[in-house]
Amino acid sequence: MPKFLTSINAISWYFLFPVIFIHFFVVAFPSILSLLLCLTDWNGFGRINYVGLENFQELFRDRVFKKAVKHNIIWTVMFLTIPVIVALVIAYLLTGIKRGQLFYRLVYFFPYILASIVNCLIWRYIFHPRHGLGGWFENQGIDFLAKSPFAMKETALYAVAWVDMWHFWGFLVIIYLTGMYQVDDSLYEAADIEGATKFQKFRYITLPMIRPIFVLSLIIIIIWSVPTFDYVYILTMGGPAYSSEVVANHLYSQAFQRMNVGYASTIGVMMFFYVGIIVGFFAILRRMGWEV
């Protein structure tokens, strides 16, 4: 057997091959197909007609798409602030707990390991106007939570985001905590000698030292916010009246309900470019010497 077939490099490729093979058919091939289908009016099973950039023109006129993009931006901003701040504070406080810390870590992380359908059903039940808190308050003669926040167009998006954040923030706690444990204790000891307060130690030692992990978490949030789908689909299906519609949900509806597969591919391509821009932006920052 030729030597290059048994070299370490070749063996690495043998192990990688199954993953690459599956990835090609499950991810790469459909993605490439989407790039082509976005220029067609394919409905998923009929004839494929080339329509040029018609789908893109339609997309910029699409009222629901514009609304969905706006919701994705709101979603991203919410996830970049609320769970990040809460997770940072809780992780920092946890570093000071010596006994029972594992218990808190488990409790905070628990929603993250639950399936999205379970999380959603729990919260939908809690806010159910008949069987949940609303019904209970009604029985006590109190008019509170009589309407589910998932069913009001003013609150639907925020209510869904709340459930997803409840599930997600425990994950951030764990990765921030991991970063904080890697900070050299001598820095804190020096700060103690200098009389630094807990906040000053957090601001001037912890935060700068965990910056790579912190920035990574922000990148993850920004990228994961783009295809966010499951919580919206399960809890509201983008409604009522598209008040919680996000881009991935709109794509699903176009592809599998309205059977506008060509148009849905156009939405997918736009999402792809948006993620590409974000990744490119952070790649540039890294080249400029940022620790990201």
Partner: peptide, 13 residues
């Protein structure tokens, strides 16, 4: 009773 509750209920309800 109202539109919001209508959205919240399923066929069992």
């Amino acid at each position: 009773g109202n539109l919001e509750t209508y959205y919240s209920l399923d066929w069992d309800d």
